[in-house]
Simulated scan of single mutants.
Amino acid sequence: MFDSTSKASACPAHAPSDHPAVPKAKTGVLLANLGTPDHYTYWPMRRYLNEFLSDRRVIDYSPWLWQPLLQLIILSKRPFTSGEAYKAIWNEDKGESPLMTITRDQTDRLSQVLHDKYGDDVMIDFCMRYGNPSTKSKVRKLVDAGCTRIVFFPLYPHYAGATSATANDQFFRALMEETWQPAARVVEAYFEHPLYIEALAQSVEAAYEDAEKRPEILVVSYHGMPQRYLKQGDPYHCQCQKTTRLLRERLGWDETEITTTFQSVFGPEEWLRPYTVEHVAELAEQGKKNIAVIAPAFSSDCIETLEEINEEIKESFEEAGGEEFLYIPCLNDNDAHIAALADIIDQNLGGWT
């Protein structure tokens, strides 16, 4: 990431000589991803899960009922099981989760693109909704560097209250603590952006081309959410369905070659259906022995893709008689994805640069 904080500050023109130095005004771009524990051991996992599961956007049950259950039961056990899952995918070389590594790589690549186009007038950084680096710390860093305008970019293609909205909430809370608040723009969901759909399609085509045998069906697996959120007006389900349709149309496929499912079910409520873990088993039982799975709702590979899809969901498929299971990685920092994200940022910088 290019660091514009090294640019010297100066006293404003026509100001008295004792006026505090002010850095050169610039525009900041702040990418936001979900978050990651600092380590997979018990206490870092507990701190991370506590912050995540205490978010009323994520779990909206009454705190009087939810917090005793969370603090006394869930957080006494779940850090161990979640820690084992993170340990299985941990980037030991860098001492961090894959989500952290990939989000940093995306930021670095976008930083180069923006620097080539805008020079030091635009700087980019990333933050996490939960864990580190915090949204508050990165907003403070951008303001200190002279950013009088910030484009806040939640890296969620599809809007949901439990993802996009809570990231925005945290950004707005950070702005509340600034004496001189920068002007702010929030990037809207990009589930139908042509370059995003193109990047997905290219990733599918490349994976199918490399496969020894063409998969019989592509399972497009999105993160799930409770059914009642849809009834309350959350657009997530509809946006997911549209992404699948646009992807199918771009690939030129028949409807029998692609299906939409939802993963990561949590708690006793009815969630969006069909559930990925159940549907892949049903496909195997119906004679579909060779399938592919892609997860377009995730901008970066993470615990839900590397561990849940590649292990739990794959195991469900194979135990039901499935034979060939192809996981198509998230777009991560591939060229087509970076081009899509850069185009979205450019659109949101309009009139500011």
Rank of each mutant, 00 (worst) to 15 (best):
R248A: 04
S203Y: 10
F191P: 02
P44W: 03
L31A: 06
N348H: 10
P235G: 06
Q239V: 00
N310L: 03
R129W: 12
C127T: 12
N33I: 02
N168E: 15
C11S: 11
E188V: 07
L283E: 09
T81Q: 07
P133H: 07
G83D: 09
V186Q: 10
Y130Q: 05
E285K: 08
L341P: 08
S134P: 04
D55A: 02
E51F: 04
Y196A: 02
I345H: 05
E282R: 06
P235N: 09
D121C: 06
I197H: 11
I258T: 03
Q232S: 12
I150L: 01
A297M: 00
N334Q: 06
E285S: 09
I217N: 11
V151Y: 12
I102P: 00
E192N: 15
R140Q: 15
T5E: 15
T135H: 03
W352A: 03
R149Y: 11
V139W: 09
T103S: 07
N310A: 05
Q112L: 04
R248L: 06
A297S: 12
E282Q: 13
W180H: 15
M128R: 02
L53Q: 11
C330D: 04
P182I: 02
L72N: 15
A336M: 11
S111K: 04
A167Q: 13
T243Y: 09
Y48E: 02
R273V: 08
I73H: 12
L142T: 09
H19W: 10
T103M: 01
P226F: 08
A165W: 12
S221L: 00
L99D: 01
G28Q: 03
P215V: 10
F325I: 00
N91Y: 01
T179E: 15
N310W: 04
A162T: 15
Q227I: 09
Y190S: 06
I89K: 00
A167W: 09
H19I: 03
V280T: 04
R57L: 01
I309T: 11
K136M: 05
E312P: 02
H223N: 05
S82V: 03
S221T: 06
F191Y: 15
W253G: 00
N50D: 14
Q263I: 09
E311V: 14
F126I: 01
V29K: 04
A183N: 13
L230E: 15
F171S: 01
C330N: 09
L246M: 14
G161D: 12
N91F: 07
E312C: 00
G224P: 05
K7Y: 14
W271A: 00
Q241S: 15
W64D: 03
E255D: 15
D333C: 08
E307N: 08
W90T: 04
N132T: 14
D144E: 14
N132F: 11
G146H: 05
